[in-house]
Amino acid sequence: MAEHVEPSMKYLQKFTSPLWDLIDLENYKPVSIIEAQRAGFDVVIIDMQHRAYGLMADNGQTANTTFFVLRHQSAFRQPQIADIGRVRQYDARLQVSVDSEAIYMAVPAKQIRPGEWEAILQIMATLAAELKETPATGQQHVKGRVSYRPVGAGYAVYLFWTIVSLIVAVTMLGFGLGGLFGLTKLAETWRESNKLSGEMLLASVFFFFGALHSYTKAKKRR
């Protein structure tokens, strides 16, 4: 029997390593939460509203993503790459993560229709059953350890953009301060030079923010 739960950020704190904290979602909040059971496992279906997803998502628009959570209730083994790859055969855009408590799945920026829920939940139940049948041993049984292979840009890409953004930011800051204090001639007149200095200082702030943003994303993928 499915049960609707009052959506709240406090409810999301029940999960240790949720997928919505691993992917590039910003300003997210739950708008609908449903608890149910599937093949003997507790499942949660969450519709999450957030800022538009992706590298070009700075237009202020919002999107919705449906997250599926299945508590596998088993001794945790670290899933192999084949596990995640097989799950993603259902949809190449599917993001998947597994920790010691739950399996998470979602297609970022896609609100899944109820008619498609059963297929996804069946995939999750199959993976959960396999995890339960293969007990963890040695270092594989690590509380809270997460298996996650993000779709799209990886660690190296975000690290590259972090370095590029920092170089541009420092360069802009140097020229901006130099022009402001008369150390660098940016234009023929004092007024034009001051104007360019202000623009460069503002640009340096933007690129420093970009470097921080890329570094944050890189840490999630390390």
Rank of each mutant, 00 (worst) to 15 (best):
residue 8 S to P: 03
residue 13 Q to T: 15
residue 15 F to E: 11
residue 22 L to I: 09
residue 24 D to M: 08
residue 26 E to Y: 14
residue 28 Y to C: 03
residue 31 V to K: 12
residue 31 V to W: 04
residue 36 A to C: 05
residue 38 R to Y: 12
residue 42 D to C: 09
residue 42 D to G: 06
residue 44 V to G: 02
residue 44 V to C: 14
residue 46 I to V: 09
residue 49 Q to R: 13
residue 50 H to T: 07
residue 50 H to F: 08
residue 54 G to T: 05
residue 56 M to P: 03
residue 57 A to S: 15
residue 59 N to S: 15
residue 60 G to D: 05
residue 63 A to N: 10
residue 67 F to Q: 06
residue 67 F to S: 03
residue 67 F to C: 05
residue 67 F to V: 09
residue 73 Q to E: 11
residue 75 A to R: 11
residue 78 Q to Y: 14
residue 81 I to G: 10
residue 86 R to N: 15
residue 87 V to M: 15
residue 88 R to I: 06
residue 88 R to F: 02
residue 89 Q to T: 11
residue 91 D to P: 03
residue 92 A to G: 07
residue 99 D to S: 03
residue 100 S to P: 01
residue 102 A to W: 00
residue 106 A to H: 01
residue 111 Q to E: 12
residue 121 L to Q: 05
residue 123 I to Y: 01
residue 124 M to V: 00
residue 124 M to G: 02
residue 130 E to F: 00
residue 132 K to T: 00
residue 133 E to H: 03
residue 134 T to G: 01
residue 136 A to I: 00
residue 137 T to C: 05
residue 141 H to I: 06
residue 144 G to T: 01
residue 146 V to G: 03
residue 148 Y to F: 15
residue 151 V to E: 11
residue 151 V to H: 05
residue 151 V to I: 11
residue 153 A to H: 07
residue 154 G to V: 02
residue 155 Y to R: 12
residue 158 Y to I: 00
residue 159 L to T: 14
residue 160 F to T: 09
residue 161 W to A: 00
residue 163 I to E: 15
residue 165 S to M: 04
residue 166 L to C: 09
residue 166 L to F: 15
residue 167 I to R: 09
residue 168 V to W: 12
residue 170 V to W: 11
residue 171 T to R: 06
residue 171 T to C: 09
residue 174 G to K: 04
residue 174 G to Q: 07
residue 176 G to Y: 03
residue 176 G to F: 02
residue 186 L to G: 08
residue 186 L to A: 06
residue 186 L to S: 06
residue 188 E to R: 09
residue 189 T to Y: 07
residue 190 W to F: 10
residue 193 S to G: 08
residue 194 N to L: 11
residue 196 L to I: 11
residue 196 L to Y: 06
residue 200 M to R: 08
residue 205 V to T: 12
residue 206 F to E: 08
residue 209 F to K: 13
residue 212 L to I: 10
residue 213 H to S: 10
residue 216 T to H: 11
residue 216 T to G: 12
residue 221 R to F: 12
